[in-house]
Structure formats: C-alpha cells, structure tokens
Computed example of a mutant assay.
Amino acid sequence: MPGDIIGLQRPAADVHRVADAAQDLLGLVETSAQAVTERNPGAASDLIRKEKSIGQLTDEDIYTYVSLREVEFALPDGSYTNVNEGYFGTANHTSCVPRTLCDKDGGAISMLVNNKTPWRRDGSGMPKGKGTLSGVIVHDLQPRYGYTNEGYIGRYSVRVLEKEEIDLAASESSSNRQTLVEWNWNNAEVRTNADGTIAPDRGNGSLWCTDPAAKYLLDNEYNGLTTSAGLNSKNALKFENTYWWDFAENTGYAVALKFSTEGAGANLSLNFTNSQGNAGGTSIYGPVYWQVEYSTDGVNFTVLPESGFCCRPFVYWQGAGGKDLSYCAVPGYADRVFILPDALRNRPEVTLLIKARSTQCIASNTATVDQGDTGTITSDMAANKRSPMRFGTIAVKSNK
C-alpha cells in the first residue's frame, strides 16, 4: 500500500547520518589497507608453541596452537579417515572425520581431519605408538558423530596443520598402553569358543548378543589405506535380526563381552569403533542412544558414568538426485573410548554390555537437526526395519 511505503521512509537527517558513517568506515578500511606493507605465507613453525597433556587443556587454549604430550591413537587401524570416500566433499555430506587420541592419564580428545587433506589416505596407515601431536585446539560440533542433536563430541578437539605435526612412533611397542583382549576380524574370519560365543583375535574372552534371536555375520568396513581402496570387505562384525529392545522387560538388548583383567595397569578402558544400519532406507531405525554397563559376576550390572553415546545409521543414496540422509548419517565407523572403574582391574572375570538405553531413533530418513532423534522403535515395526549394529574393532586396554 502507498501509505506503508511512506511509513518506512527514513527522515532526511537520518539518511545523511547513515551516509556519513559509511564514508567514515570506507576511510578506515582504506587506511588499514595502506598499512599492510607485505604478505608472507605462514607455517606451523611460526606459531607460539604450548606443551600440555590432554587433561591440562582449558578454554583459554581454544584457537591456540598446542603440542599434546604422550598421546597415541586409541584405535589405530586403517587410515586417518575411515569412511566411504564417495560421501566426502559435496553438499550435505561429511566435511571432516574425528579420530580419537588418548594418553596414559586417561585423557581423550578427537583429532579432526578435513575431507580434502591430501595425506588422509596416502598408503602409510596410522602410527600405533606414542609421541607428540601438535595442532590448533577448537570447540567443534559434529552432528553426525555427536551425542546430542547439536553435535557435541567433547569440549575440545584438535586440528593438525601438517602431517609432520603427528609426531607419533610407528610401532605399537612404544605405546604406553597394552591390549588385554581385542576383536578386530582383520583376517576376515570369525573364531568361536566351545560355547558358541565369538572368540577374540588377541587375548582370551567371549562376545555375544543378549538377544537370543540375533544373528551375526561379517560385513564391510572402510579402513582402506588409500582413497582408491576405501572399502574393506568382511572386516567388521554385524549383529542383526533384532530391534535391540526387549519389549516384555522394557529394557535394551546389548552386545556383551567377557574377559579377565588380571595383570591390567591403570586407566583400564573399553575402545571400539561402530555404526549401524544397512546403508538403506529401511534399516535406519535402530536405537540412537546407548550406554556401557559393567559387572564382576555377570548378573548385577552398573551403568558406567558418562558412558552415553550416540550411534546414528550409515549414510546412503536416496533417489536419482543422490541426496543422502541429512544431519544423522555417518559414512563410516565412529571411535568410542570409555575409561572403566579401577575396581575392575585384576579380576578373573569382567562382563561389559554395550547396551541400548532407549527406543528413541531418528525421526525419518529426511530428519534435520531440528527434528532430531524423535522417532520410536515399536514391536510392530516391519522386520526389515531392524537395524543391525556393526563393529570394526572392540578392545580392552590399560597402561603397561
């Protein structure tokens, strides 16, 4: 309406004041530009270096360059970006991958590797020993990996600037940590115990699903050393044919592992990589929220404090346009590290449960961050909506 247009006009005096302010700002920009005498490329060596352990980091370290002492990768299989490379670098797809670092004091932090980093998969794999890793400390949100819709993956993460800043020993012999028991399926085979449970590849123990109806088989993971060989077939274990919820008892089913901790050092931990789904539009409705529980008698279990984690389904293509799941899809297996109670050390038998904590699942295959994980698993859902859980490595470690 004409009256509305007149009502939005500024008085002449205001227009003049705005013009004067703009002119002042332009003059400031011109003066600042003239003050620049030369430009030189920067390098990591130019930065002021601080040395700290993971546990010593504070908010004052955010956006500063820090050298982290005595760290190592918690799960050093494969490459720095164990994902399906086809989902890197385009709209709505993954821009970086978090890999978890740990130290002998029980500290853990994610190292973020961008999807265009040239050394992400250069054929050399990952260092398996300890050393110093330097980079810029950030507070970064990763909705695909984070526990909440906001993508919280820990208060601090580290971004390295050059591969040379990952100054860790290649050999596991230099590690501060020892492996008590590990399931990894790197030989593309499943070994079983006399009771039918799954035997580990290192050490002694048992692994099974607490849902009697569940079945297991080997499937793919993405731990290839080069970008042209990102997919490794039959190097991960998949439990399927379960909703992961006991509707009669109103509690979650779990992946259980039993082992001895005799000879364990300090900072006993459960380390594993996992994801869920079959990379398709039906099997995406698995439980999003999980937790770890522990027991020394196999009967009475206690929830491990701060062990809640988020596991969203695999990414997959939708339709001819190639659009994928929005915020919730992960194109690989995510790292998990949980410090276990000191009371579990030097026990003849410890049982851990990686257990669904609710029936909450993603809202749909087009869910956005705002819609979040607002779906619900029900007993009358179609059988093809049972979402499998996948594990690339499951290990229990401690200090030497």
Rank of each mutant, 00 (worst) to 15 (best):
residue 184 N to S: 14
residue 298 G to C: 03
residue 114 N to T: 08
residue 31 T to G: 06
residue 373 D to L: 00
residue 348 P to V: 05
residue 179 T to A: 08
residue 79 S to H: 02
residue 215 K to H: 08
residue 378 T to N: 00
residue 3 G to D: 07
residue 32 S to Q: 15
residue 53 S to G: 09
residue 366 T to V: 13
residue 257 L to K: 12
residue 333 Y to T: 14
residue 258 K to T: 02
residue 5 I to R: 10
residue 69 R to M: 15
residue 307 S to L: 04
residue 335 D to E: 06
residue 355 K to M: 08
residue 43 A to N: 09
residue 18 V to I: 06
residue 170 A to P: 14
residue 14 D to F: 11
residue 303 V to H: 00
residue 231 L to Y: 13
residue 50 K to G: 08
residue 221 E to F: 14
residue 74 A to D: 13
residue 362 I to Y: 03
residue 186 N to F: 10
residue 382 A to D: 02
residue 316 Y to E: 02
residue 20 D to S: 11
residue 383 A to F: 06
residue 6 I to N: 07
residue 386 R to S: 01
residue 394 I to D: 01
residue 176 N to Q: 06
residue 380 D to F: 09
residue 161 L to M: 03
residue 329 A to Q: 11
residue 315 V to P: 01
residue 316 Y to T: 15
residue 174 S to A: 12
residue 180 L to D: 12
residue 205 G to M: 13
residue 95 S to N: 11
residue 108 A to R: 01
residue 40 N to L: 11
residue 213 A to H: 03
residue 359 T to N: 02
residue 75 L to E: 12
residue 119 W to H: 01
residue 158 V to L: 10
residue 173 S to C: 14
residue 78 G to R: 04
residue 374 T to V: 07
residue 322 G to D: 09
residue 308 G to K: 13
residue 34 Q to A: 12
residue 301 F to T: 02
residue 345 R to Q: 07
residue 100 T to K: 13
residue 6 I to D: 11
residue 52 K to G: 08
residue 59 D to M: 03
residue 12 A to L: 12
residue 101 L to D: 11
residue 145 Y to C: 13
residue 188 A to C: 05
residue 4 D to V: 14
residue 369 V to L: 08
residue 116 K to R: 15
residue 182 E to C: 13
residue 257 L to P: 06
residue 215 K to Y: 08
residue 21 A to N: 10
residue 110 S to P: 03
residue 282 T to M: 14
residue 204 N to E: 12
residue 217 L to Q: 15
residue 378 T to I: 02
residue 149 N to E: 10
residue 171 S to C: 06
residue 138 V to T: 02
residue 194 A to M: 12
residue 161 L to R: 06
residue 381 M to S: 10
residue 261 T to M: 06
residue 75 L to I: 14
residue 159 R to D: 02
residue 222 Y to K: 14
residue 269 S to N: 10
residue 264 A to W: 01
residue 276 Q to N: 15
residue 38 E to M: 12
residue 21 A to D: 03
residue 30 E to K: 09
residue 297 D to R: 00
residue 197 T to Q: 00
residue 105 D to R: 02
residue 236 A to G: 14
residue 33 A to L: 10
residue 97 V to F: 09
residue 293 E to S: 14
residue 178 Q to E: 12
residue 76 P to K: 05
residue 32 S to P: 09
residue 372 G to R: 07
residue 290 W to G: 07
residue 344 L to N: 01
residue 137 I to G: 07
residue 152 Y to S: 10
residue 212 P to V: 01
residue 14 D to V: 03
residue 118 P to L: 15
residue 380 D to M: 04
residue 357 R to D: 02
residue 82 N to F: 03
residue 228 S to W: 15
residue 341 P to I: 10
residue 208 W to F: 05
residue 154 G to W: 05
residue 56 Q to A: 04
residue 223 N to T: 15
residue 46 D to C: 08
residue 395 A to I: 11
residue 253 Y to W: 07
residue 13 A to E: 15
residue 305 P to H: 05
residue 379 S to D: 14
residue 160 V to Y: 06
residue 297 D to E: 02
residue 357 R to L: 00
residue 356 A to V: 10
residue 256 A to F: 07
residue 74 A to L: 05
residue 370 D to V: 03
residue 307 S to I: 00
residue 62 I to C: 04
residue 236 A to R: 08
residue 169 A to Q: 03
residue 13 A to L: 05
residue 399 N to K: 04
residue 329 A to E: 05
residue 388 P to G: 10
residue 219 D to N: 14
residue 292 V to H: 05
residue 208 W to D: 08
residue 106 G to P: 04
residue 50 K to E: 05
